[in-house]
Write a protein that binds this DNA or RNA. Structure first.
Length: 555
RNA sequence: GCCCCCAUCGUCCAGCGGCCUAGGACUCCGCCCUUUCAAGGCGGCAACGGGGAUUCGAAUUCCCCUGGGGGCACCA
């Protein structure tokens, strides 16, 4: 019996028959099986007949996906199943996010699985990276890898189970031992190509059953292939793409078990989806054309296919599929570059979904959950453009409270400084936080802005110096400031402000002409946080010293 | 080559037959505010790929073309 699972994950699943039925339907030509679904008004996708979601306005979007309890549906179970063959990248993170949002929106379960059947390319380092960054993003999973409990949710631990399923499929005739050689297959595909026909392998190169049985029992190396019923077709309704139809003539008799006994992705992934009771498979569009294989496999196992939702892919600025050559695609790079997880989530959510009701597109995780609607996701591929991410990160940074901001930026500041800040210095830094915050897009910029306050100047920015120091007003301003500030007491922003403005007036200088030289003298650049506050934090002695040094440089 | 998906400003999204002289966000450009840089305010540039068809009426429906993307492994 195929439906049995020997490694049931935490939380027993109902019998398949009780599950909310997916939209997958296999049919032999001429037979149109009805796709019973527990709620025809949900997840029909935009391509389906309009469900009459009510008049626009009045929050009908919410009503459309409101969950009706008490139905026959078992609760939603989704999974994010990355292969640990690389660091968590932004595209995968978006897939994880949408899975997470859907689970939370439906009161369902979010599962993390490790699809590590590619033993050659998988590594623990990648696996760790994926976990770490999912956690960093706050996409906590309810079941799965790394949480303990029954089941490891790691496919490399379940080879026996997959082999067992494969054996049962062979037993039932749904699959067979295949002896075609790679060369033969190449030739087959080559011929199909020149003939302009479908290159899908149909098993026609296999030996007679009797001979196959003999060779198999003699221990000849063989793979197990799934026998795709031909003619026939698989139709299903994709939640984001609508009704899909794939003729089986286009589908290979695909390998499910390698000659070394290990499963392929199709087998392992499908078995797991059945065993773990996955109700909705939300994944990248690159798997769309593999879906018939998964549905066929599921049904051959006696399972009920999940509902599928295929997300559009992320592209680089050149319109090609996002990859390393487009620059940073690893989540780690964004974390290190000083992006906040909230901003990353928000931005990623926007790539393919109109996540916010507000004009500025800023939306909290809670609101995203409240609004999430699988059927409303865009079908267009989206270009990953960091410009908007930068802006959005600035928004989130500005919204940080001062304490959090200090906590997040202090380590980098101290690292740049090469020493730790005294308690008194931290206080001074804190005083400047409101000013610095609104000038920051990514965290490391903070150090750049305030470093001059905590260490001696290491020279002046050349362009800045030329621009404001090589003017007739510079010396006047510096002399005037030195005089105005030398005996200033108290040394506060207000007092400095007053003293310097008096100086400007008596010297007949505009603020621009008179203050910029001071800024360069003190900070080394024409770009810095507000001057008076900066001077207060710098302290009188250091301020005067820097003004004198610049003045000397002028002479 | 075969199969599949997609097609609104530079980018993301809205638009679900009349409310569209197409809306918002980011970017960019002006102006205002201002001691610099930001932030903020105001304003501007900027799109329905092409062709047919249906309809009184199409960005919205259908077909074709073109363009872009994905898949066609003992990778996932």
């Amino acid at each position: 019996m195929l439906g049995q699972r020997r490694d049931p994950p935490r939380g027993q699943h109902r019998r398949h028959g009780l599950r909310c039925r997916g939209a997958g339907v296999v049919r032999v030509v001429g037979h149109d099986a009805a796709a019973g679904r527990c709620d025809p008004h949900r997840y029909t996708g935009r391509r389906g007949p309009h469900d009459g979601g009510g008049p626009r306005g009045g929050g009908d979007r919410r009503n459309r996906r409101a969950h009706e309890p008490g139905g026959e549906c078992m609760s939603v179970r989704v999974r994010f199943a990355p292969s640990p063959t690389g660091f968590l990248h932004v595209g995968a993170a978006r897939t994880a996010l949408y899975n997470y949002l859907f689970a939370r929106a439906e009161g369902g379960v979010f599962i993390l699985r490790s699809d590590d059947t590619d033993t050659a390319r998988s590594s623990q380092e990648y696996q760790d990276d994926i976990l770490e960054h999912l956690r960093w993003l706050g996409l906590e999973w309810d079941e799965g890898y790394g949480l303990g409990g029954p089941g490891t949710f790691r496919q490399s631990d379940r080879y026996e189970r997959y082999a067992q399923v494969a054996a049962e499929l062979v037993e039932s005739g749904a699959a067979y031992y295949s002896f075609v050689t790679p060369d033969q297959l190449d030739q087959f595909k080559q011929d199909a190509r020149t003939a302009g026909t479908s290159p899908a392998y149909d098993g026609s190169l296999e030996p007679e059953p009797a001979e196959a049985g003999r060779r198999q029992s003699e221990g000849e190396s063989a793979v197990v292939r799934f026998r795709v019923p031909r003619p026939g077709e698989t139709v299903f309704t994709d939640v984001v793409r609508g009704d899909m139809r794939f003729e089986h003539a286009q589908v290979d008799d695909f390998v499910i078990l390698r000659s070394d006994g290990r499963p392929t992705y199709h087998l392992a992934s499908t078995v797991d989806d059945v065993d773990y009771g996955i109700t909705h498979v939300i994944r990248g569009e690159d798997l769309l054309s593999s879906t018939p294989k998964h549905i066929l496999l599921t049904e051959a196992m006696g399972g009920v296919p999940a509902t599928y939702a295929h997300l559009s892919l992320l592209m680089g600025p050149d319109g090609k599929k996002l990859s390393k050559r487009h620059g940073d695609t690893a989540m780690a790079a964004y974390r290190e570059a000083g992006y906040l997880p909230e901003a990353v989530n928000n931005y990623l959510a926007l790539l393919g979904w109109s996540a916010s009701e507000d004009d500025d597109d800023v939306v909290s995780m809670a609101d995203m959950i409240a609004r999430f609607d699988l059927g409303a996701l865009s079908r267009n591929p989206a270009v990953f453009d960091t410009k908007k991410l930068d802006w959005m990160n600035g928004v989130y940074i500005r919204n940080l409270d001062d304490e959090a901001f200090v906590a997040m930026t202090l380590p980098d500041l101290e690292r740049s400084l090469g020493r730790s800040l005294s308690a008194e210095e931290v206080e001074r830094f804190r005083d400047l936080v409101p000013l610095v915050k609104e000038r920051t897009k990514v965290l490391p910029e903070v150090s750049e802005q305030v470093l001059f306050l905590f260490r001696p100047l290491d020279g002046y920015d050349e362009a800045s110096w030329e621009k404001v120091m090589e003017t007739p007003e510079a010396a006047v301003a510096l002399d005037g400031a030195i005089e105005a500030l030398t005996d200033l007491d108290p040394w506060t922003t207000e007092a400095i402000d007053g003293a310097l403005r008096d100086m400007l007036e008596s010297e007949g200088l505009s603020a621009r002409k008179g203050l910029q030289p001071l800024r360069v003298a003190v900070s080394g650049s024409t770009v810095s946080p507000p001057l008076f506050e900066s001077l207060e934090v710098l302290g009188r002695d250091e301020t005067i010293a820097r003004l004198r040094a610049a003045r000397a440089e002028l002479a």
